[in-house]
Design a protein around this nucleic acid. Structure first.
Length: 356
DNA sequence: AATCCGGGGAT
DNA sequence: ATCCCAGGATT
């Protein structure tokens, strides 16, 4: 006999949950996996278009596994957390090579794959294979913290353990997939982060947070993130009809994306014209001409604020001092994945007028 | 245990 | 501005 919470949740799911998504009820583990990776820390509304694009481009895991990496990253461009994309490719290749194209069928095997943690493994195992594993995502944590009135922070080791145990106890082991889907929908539709719909909530009578007016305070998060600022000066160096770009490979933001010639500082430079020794160092005695300096663009990341400025430079000879950078014809540029701050610049009409 | 990894939407 | 999103990997 399951707790009343589970009964009421499933009742709500049957009678009132109208939330519809393309992967709901899906049984193909490939499609479930793809949707779950895309949706990690990503809103359904934001991930939806990417899911459709990926399914259209790669209907099977075999096709994804053999696709050129560049093409996959171009599809992922703009979605963020690019390690997910790298792991997506690696996992597709592992499943095809080591598992003969058949997606692993148990939670433990699934969790071994790259980019798959406790949440995603539980989601795939329950949705595709009916294994009784409880998902714990942001929705589930919030619902349980409020329903039970728990003030243990969700972003601690003990908190994660506690919420996983609670979720497991509440799970309907007869229909784990339906239950997991239901509690996440419930968190997204009723027990929302802001302005939850307590007035129409079927759990209201037993909700500890509602009883004690703690709905707004729960769940508790312990850590606050520290941010740092970085200044990126991008030199768009044109030689004939080509530009220098490189792939970002350091352990840093935007790994596997591309960029123009970068000069980075941790404080803004006083004047692009006077105080930037970078260009002179780069060109030495070679001549160059600066044709345009853009406004300052900004991009807010989780832990960083990026200030970006774009300096368009033309030269009549190749720049030999540029290591790692390669010359790409301007017509080929759109094949490469760039960070949003660069695409924002490229998409502005004034920028295009300078470059093309 | 702490930190990092994006981009977008709501408030 | 701040929070949060169908989290996971690294140190």
């Amino acid at each position: 006999m399951k707790p009343t919470f589970t009964e009421k949740l499933l009742e709500w799911n049957n009678a009132q949950n109208t939330r519809s998504m393309p992967w709901k009820g899906e049984k193909d583990p490939y499609k479930i996996w793809l949707s779950e990776i895309i949706l990690q820390q990503t809103r359904v509304e934001q991930g939806l278009a990417y899911y459709e694009k990926f399914i259209a481009a790669f209907p099977t895991i075999q096709q994804l596994a053999k696709a050129p990496e560049k093409k996959v990253f171009k599809l992922w461009e703009g979605l963020g957390y690019y390690t997910r994309c790298r792991n997506l490719i690696a996992t597709a290749q592992i499943v095809v090579k080591d598992h003969k194209g058949k997606f692993p069928r148990t939670y433990d095997q699934i969790k071994e794959l790259k980019g798959i943690g406790p949440y995603t493994a539980a989601a795939i195992a329950s949705f595709a294979f009916n294994e009784p594993r409880a998902v714990v995502d942001g929705n589930v944590q919030r619902v349980m913290a409020r329903y039970f009135g728990i003030s243990t922070p969700i972003d601690t080791t003990s908190g994660k353990k506690l919420y996983q145990e609670l979720a497991t106890a509440l799970l309907d082991t007869e229909q784990p997939g339906i239950y997991n889907q239901a509690i996440m929908d419930f968190g997204a539709v009723i027990c929302k982060p802001q302005n939850p719909l307590c007035s129409v909530c079927p759990q209201q009578a037993d909700c500890e947070a509602f009883k004690h007016d703690l709905v707004k305070q729960l769940p508790v998060k312990e850590k606050s993130l520290k941010k740092k600022e970085r200044w990126f000066y991008y030199f768009i160096i044109q030689y004939q009809s080509k530009f220098y770009i490189r792939e970002r490979t350091d352990k840093d933001i935007w790994q596997s994306l591309h960029e123009f010639v970068l000069y980075e500082t941790d404080t803004p430079v006083q004047s692009i014209f006077q105080d930037l020794p970078f260009l002179k160092t780069l060109f030495g005695k070679q001549s160059y001409s600066v044709s345009h300096i853009s406004k300052v663009y900004h991009q807010q990341l989780t832990h960083q604020l990026i200030h970006g400025q774009f300096i368009t430079v033309t030269t009549v000879k190749p720049v030999t001092a540029l290591k790692d950078y390669v010359l790409i014809d301007k017509k080929q540029l759109k094949q490469y994945a760039f960070p949003r701050i660069i695409n924002t610049f490229l998409e502005e009409k004034s920028s295009l007028a300078q470059l093309f």
